[in-house]
């Protein structure tokens, strides 16, 4: 695997679309070719060379092996990191802007700082790890889109904003910190697990899917029905699947006793909020 390092020279004036900097598009390109790639910044075009110092970690980046990309000095103006990536890895040292892992199809994307809104939007596969906090609409659908995230795993070590997993279709969102309001709103399926607290209106309009919480939300919508405390045998399997993941979810002990709230009854009531019971 060859490593390509992009060191941000200075914080850009405008937001920059970093869609082209994925392992897929960079495979087989020379450093000069990479430096010449155009990026959209605000209403003008700049080149990768204008924005970054590029260095390649291995002797040659021209082979077609999987590329690992490292972006240093990340900042909140860098959008669309890992857009549509299918393989390889990207590590961002610092913060990112919006639309991280947009339409991600595979590979591993690690952000060592915070990310903006719509991280993991349209994601279908792969692992997105956010060491800091995530903005609103994590794994959600774009406005007007019918489905949010449709596969893969998102791990947030900090907290996440509002509307996590809005219209989420499949996959898992694991939040070690707290979740904002409307967590799992209009969810279609999939799993969202939160180790911290959740805000108001959690599960609002959810159709199916599972919200797995450490404690009962302060205000639970009247549209969720208490189904009592039960042992659910799929939970040990779910917890076991977290073993290989980075972060605190890997250390969750096997357990299966939860209080089950079924809802949103205004939208079929086939979804569930599960709260650890022991």
């Amino acid at each position: 695997m060859s490593a390509l390092t992009f060191k941000l020279k200075a914080q850009p004036q405008q937001r920059v679309d970093l869609s082209p900097l994925t392992p897929d598009t960079l495979a087989g390109l020379s450093n000069d070719a990479i430096a010449a790639i155009e990026l959209q910044s605000g209403n003008r075009k700049i080149t990768v060379g204008d924005l970054f110092d590029i260095s390649s970690g291995s002797a040659s980046s021209t082979d077609d092996e999987t590329v690992s990309v490292i972006i240093e000095n990340g900042c909140s103006k860098l959008d669309y990191i890992g857009n549509g990536m299918t393989r390889g890895s990207i590590v961002v040292r610092g913060d990112c802007g919006a639309y991280v892992a947009f339409n991600m199809r595979g590979g591993a994307l690690t952000i060592e700082g915070n990310v903006g809104a719509y991280a993991g939007c349209g994601m279908k596969s792969g692992v997105l790890r956010i060491a800091g906090n995530a903005g609103d609409f994590l794994g959600a659908a774009l406005p007007g889109f019918r489905h949010g995230m449709a596969g893969g795993t998102i791990i947030v070590s900090g907290s996440a904003g509002e509307r996590i997993g809005d219209h989420m279709r499949r996959g898992a969102i694991l939040i070690e910190g707290n979740a904002g309001d409307y967590c799992g709103s209009r969810m279609l399926a999939g799993t969202i697990a939160v180790l911290g607290e959740v805000g108001e209106h959690c599960g609002f309009g959810m159709k199916r899917g599972t919200l797995l919480l450490s404690s009962k939300p302060q205000k639970l919508s009247a549209l969720f029905s208490d189904c009592g405390t039960h042992n659910l045998n799929f939970l040990p399997l779910l917890i076991k699947s977290w073993r290989a993941l980075p972060g605190r979810f890997a250390e969750v002990q096997p357990r299966k006793r939860v209080r089950r709230y079924a809802g949103d009854n205004a939208n079929g009531g086939k979804g569930e909020i599960l709260v650890w019971a022991d």
């Binding site: 499949r170 799993t191 199916r208 659910l232 045998n233 799929f234 399997l237 779910l238 699947s241 569930e272």
Partner: peptide
């Protein structure tokens, strides 16, 4: 009867079927 729930865990699909002693997985 429509109350069954699918869970995709590690690429494998499981069905949770509600039964009288809990869930059949």
């Amino acid at each position: 009867d429509g109350f069954q729930i699918s869970k995709l865990i590690d690429g494998r699909r499981y069905w949770r079927v509600p039964v009288m002693d809990g869930e059949f997985l």
